[in-house]
């Protein structure tokens, strides 16, 4: 029996009458069987459930919503991270985190020092700022000294004494002298004029080794 021939006729959709002419009786019987089986098979499509479309669309909508929510959350996290990073950055640059701050604390203290030209006592500075000076500022002197001389020559000599005793010149005309030389320094100044001095009790720098003085020379 030529099965290939039978299959060929089925593939070509040849009619029963035509197939009968082309095939032997036995082959035709087989042809008919296959044709009948094929016709039953062609009706064997099972219909999908009617709500499949609805179900797929609702699943799709749900998935899209979940994805959007996920990406939304992700975006929020990134956004929150950026805000925190900016905030920490501002804190660091403003010096609120000293260990990370790029600003020199010395410079910072200088920023709150009294403006140049003002007296060493820094009368306009609040008590809080005075505390700051107490800790580390070399600007506010321990003693304010006034030397009244009669001639310009004496004034120059007084300035020369100051230069001799001054071991460290500080801003605003303040000098740091050795503690043990303080009395001798006053005596030397006294040689050229009348010396008045008072201790600046509010300002004390405990870290320094010498005594800081600001000398005002007045020619009368």
């Amino acid at each position: 029996m030529n099965m290939k021939k039978i299959e060929e006729l089925i593939e070509r959709n040849v009619s029963r009458e035509e197939a009968k002419k082309l095939l032997t009786e036995k082959e035709f019987k087989e042809f008919e069987k296959l044709l009948y089986m094929k016709s039953v098979l062609s009706e064997m499509q099972v219909k999908p459930p009617t709500d499949m479309e609805k179900r797929v669309l609702s699943k799709l909508a749900k998935k899209e919503k979940t994805e959007r929510r996920f990406f939304g959350k992700k975006f929020n996290l990134v956004f929150a991270f950026i805000i925190i990073a900016v905030f920490v950055g501002v804190l660091i640059t403003r010096g609120f985190i000293p260990s990370l701050s790029p600003v020199n604390p010395q410079t910072q203290n200088r920023a709150i020092a009294p403006p140049s030209g003002s007296s060493g006592n820094a009368g306009g500075i609040s008590s809080q700022n005075k505390k700051g000076l107490q800790m580390s500022s070399p600007i506010a002197p321990d003693y304010l000294i006034k030397v009244v001389v009669s001639t310009e020559t004496d004034a120059q000599k007084v300035r020369s004494v100051i230069r001799n005793y001054c071991k460290k010149a500080l801003p605003n005309g303040i000098c740091e002298i050795e503690s043990e030389n303080f009395e001798e320094f006053i005596k030397e100044l006294g040689k050229y004029g009348k010396v008045e001095y008072k201790e600046n009790s509010a300002v004390k720098d405990v870290t320094k080794t010498g005594i800081t003085v600001k000398v005002e020379v007045i020619v009368q």
């Binding site: 499509q45 099972v46 219909k47 999908p48 499949m52 479309e53 797929v56």
Partner: peptide, 11 residues
Amino acid sequence: FIKKYSGFLFN
């Protein structure tokens, strides 16, 4: 798309 392919895929 769903109408066209649901039957085929289901079968």
